[in-house]
Every structure is written in C-alpha cells, then in structure tokens.
Design a protein around this nucleic acid. Structure first.
Lengths: 125, 125
DNA sequence: GCTTACCTTTACGTTAACGTAAAGCAACCC
DNA sequence: GGGTTGCTTTACGTTAACGTAAAGGTAAGC
C-alpha cells in the first residue's frame, strides 16, 4: 500500500497550520481523498505542498505557485495549452535568473554591512 | 551640485507609482528633503528605493527591507545594537542560502517540466 | 457515560501593501 | 484669466493569505 497522511501529520511535518492546508485546497491546489469526512493525503499531495512552500520561500504568490503545480503534470493539455506552458516556463526562468542576481547583490551588501559593523564595533572598544 | 529627483522622476525611472514612494516614506524608509511643499530626492534616496525593490523581488516584506536599510549605515549604533545587527546579518545570509537552494531546485523542475511539455507536444503531431 | 483528541464546516477578522478618488495649491501656456 | 500639468494631503477601498473563533461529529480511553 502507498503511504497516506492525515492533515495534522502533514501540518506537523511541514510546519504549517491545518488551516493553511485547507486553504490551499479551497484554492484548488490540492484535492485529497476522503475517508468518510476526513481528508486523506497521498505522497503526491505532499509533493505539491512542498512545491507551494518552496515557492513561498522565494516570494511567489499562491497564484504563481498554482501555475507551477499545473506545470507539474501537463499531460492533459492540448497543443495551445502546451505552448503557453512553454511560454510560462520561459518567463519563470527569467524571473529566477533575476532573483539569482538580486541574491548575489544582497550577499555583497551583507558583506560590506558586516564590515562596517565590525569596524564600528572596534570604535566602541 | 549633487543630483536631485522629483517624485515622478523616480517613479518613471524605477517603474513604480508615486503612491508607493510616498507609502515607503510613511513607513519611515525614506525622508526626502522639501523645497516648499515638494519632495526632493537625493541619490541616496534612490539607492534606498532600489534596495527596497530588490528586496521585494526576492519576496522580502517591507519590514525586512527596512532592516536591510538600517544595516546600510550602522554608524549611529551602540554596542548592543551593532551586535544585534551582526545577528540579523547572519540570519539573512542563512535565508539567502536557502533561497539559492530553492531556486536551483525550481530550475531543475522547470527543466523536467519543459521536457514533459515537449514530448507531450510531439504526441499531438 | 464522560472526557480527550482529532476531525469537520462556516464565517467573520486581520495585516500588508498599496490603489483610487477627492480636493486643493503653484507654475507655466496661450 | 482659463486651462493644463504636476505636486500635495486626507481618507476610504481592495486583495492575498491566512488567523481565529464557534459549533459540532466521531472514535479511543477510563
């Protein structure tokens, strides 16, 4: 049998609230099975959640995260759809490249900020 | 004389609204000079705005951006302050490192997504 | 049979980061 | 002097992404 999770299992493991998980479902980013009333999550659901969290860490909106999820299995797309998918992939790549530049630049600024802090600290001695 | 800018100069050049610029001032992230009623911005103000925009591109909140700005000139800090600055710098570095990992991972996923798109496209031929 | 621990739905509340509209001053153009 | 352009302040509106009750269902343990 393939592994399943309760909602609080996932909440604990991924360090988010159950409310957040239900919210993502409301936004059609998840559709877990049900056993009676209760939600039952699959490994795939967990992967999607991780995608969402990773997206959020680099500042993606949930709408953007949903796009990423749609890219995750493009099987059901017609020609037109697939081509817009490829477009979106290209755009995302450009965005990620820009973010890499931004991060590098910020690391440099943190370096000089640390420098200045340290010399200022020496002044106080 | 050192260069100055009007609010719409900066808005045009940095591609944001004047409302946003005024809002950042409300949040104590800018404090431009005044000529009569009008705001007059210095090159330093422009640097700060760029810091903000860069921060936003990688998902920082304005509160986080303000911290970065404070790190930008730590001259006026006492010992205690300077040490918390160094702490914050360390934290930011860790966050940036995590973001780098996230971006790399996403690039990989975009690669495989593109693969799947292309093979799916070939199916439609 | 009562408590405790999870689960559910419904619904209103909250915060961040501006958007948008209203109303008005100052300078230049014709 | 009337209109346009660009600046100002004040203030209410909006969206995203949940938080936070409230009210209740179910199964386990004592």
């Amino acid at each position: 049998m393939t592994q399943t999770y309760s909602i609080s299992d996932l909440a604990r493991e991924l360090d988010i609230t159950t409310r957040a998980i239900r919210f993502y479902e409301e936004q059609n980013m998840l559709s877990p099975e049900r056993r009676g009333q209760e939600r039952v999550y699959s490994p795939r659901d967990k992967v999607i959640l991780k995608l969402i969290l990773r997206g959020k860490r680099i500042g993606f909106s949930l709408a953007e995260c949903r796009e990423l999820i749609e890219l995750y299995d493009p099987g059901h797309g017609n020609r037109k759809q697939l081509e817009t998918f490829l477009d979106k992939i290209t755009q995302r790549r450009a965005q990620l490249a820009q973010q890499l530049l931004d991060i590098e630049q910020m690391q440099i600024e943190l370096d000089t900020a640390e420098e200045r802090c340290r010399t200022a600290l020496e002044q106080t001695n």
